[in-house]
Computed example of a mutant assay.
Amino acid sequence: MDYDYKKKEKKNGNCVISVRDRWENSIIEFEKKQHHIDIVVNYRNDKTTKYSIPIEIFGKVYEDLQRGN
């Protein structure tokens, strides 16, 4: 598998999870903050997109993906 999964804790206590696709040279990072999740996508070191969504919505997306709905 050409993916690297890393979990770390920042000095401020926030949890950061990153998944790197080595083949495409892209990375997606998830950072849990107080009431929301920041999602940062970096594709081939030149395109960066950041999303910030409430934790409740992130949880609903995860649950729906697990159920296949």
Rank of each mutant, 00 (worst) to 15 (best):
V40G: 00
K8H: 03
V61G: 10
H36F: 10
T48D: 06
I28C: 11
K47Q: 04
M1F: 00
I37H: 02
N14Q: 15
K32R: 14
K47D: 02
K10P: 02
Y3T: 05
K32T: 05
K47L: 08
R67A: 14
N42F: 00
I37M: 14
Y62Q: 06
I39V: 07
I37K: 03
D4G: 04
Y62W: 05
E24A: 15
I27K: 13
Q66M: 14
E9K: 13
F58I: 02
D21F: 14
I39K: 03
E63R: 06
R44G: 01
E63L: 14
N42A: 01
G13Y: 09
K50Q: 08
T49M: 06
V16Q: 15
H36V: 00
I17W: 11
K10S: 09
D46W: 01
H35Q: 10
F58Q: 01
S26L: 12
V41N: 04
T48S: 06
D64R: 07
K50N: 06
Y3A: 05
D64T: 03
I27A: 11
E63C: 08
G13E: 12
F30C: 11
Y43K: 01
S52Y: 01
E24V: 11
F30V: 07
N12G: 08
V16K: 15
G68T: 01
Y5D: 12
K60H: 09
D21I: 12
T49D: 10
V40R: 06
G68C: 04
Y43F: 04
M1P: 11
K6E: 12
Y51Q: 00
K50C: 08
K50E: 12
H35S: 09
T49F: 11
D64K: 09
Q34S: 05
K8L: 09
D2M: 01
G13A: 13
Y5W: 08
Y51A: 01
E24S: 14
K7V: 15
V19H: 09
Y62D: 04
K10D: 13
T48M: 09
I17C: 15
R22I: 14
K7D: 12
N25A: 15
G68A: 04
S18G: 11
I57R: 09
S26K: 08
V61A: 15
D2T: 03
N14A: 07
Y3Q: 03
D38I: 01
I57F: 13
R67K: 14
T49S: 08
E56L: 09
N14M: 06
Y51E: 00
N14V: 07
N45L: 03
R44L: 02
D38Q: 01
K11E: 14
D4C: 03
Y62N: 04
T48Q: 09
F58S: 05
H35Y: 07
H35M: 02
K47E: 02
D4R: 08
Y43H: 02
Y43M: 00
V40I: 06
T49V: 05
P54S: 08
N12R: 13
N42T: 03
S26M: 12
H35T: 05
V16I: 13
E9C: 03
E29P: 11
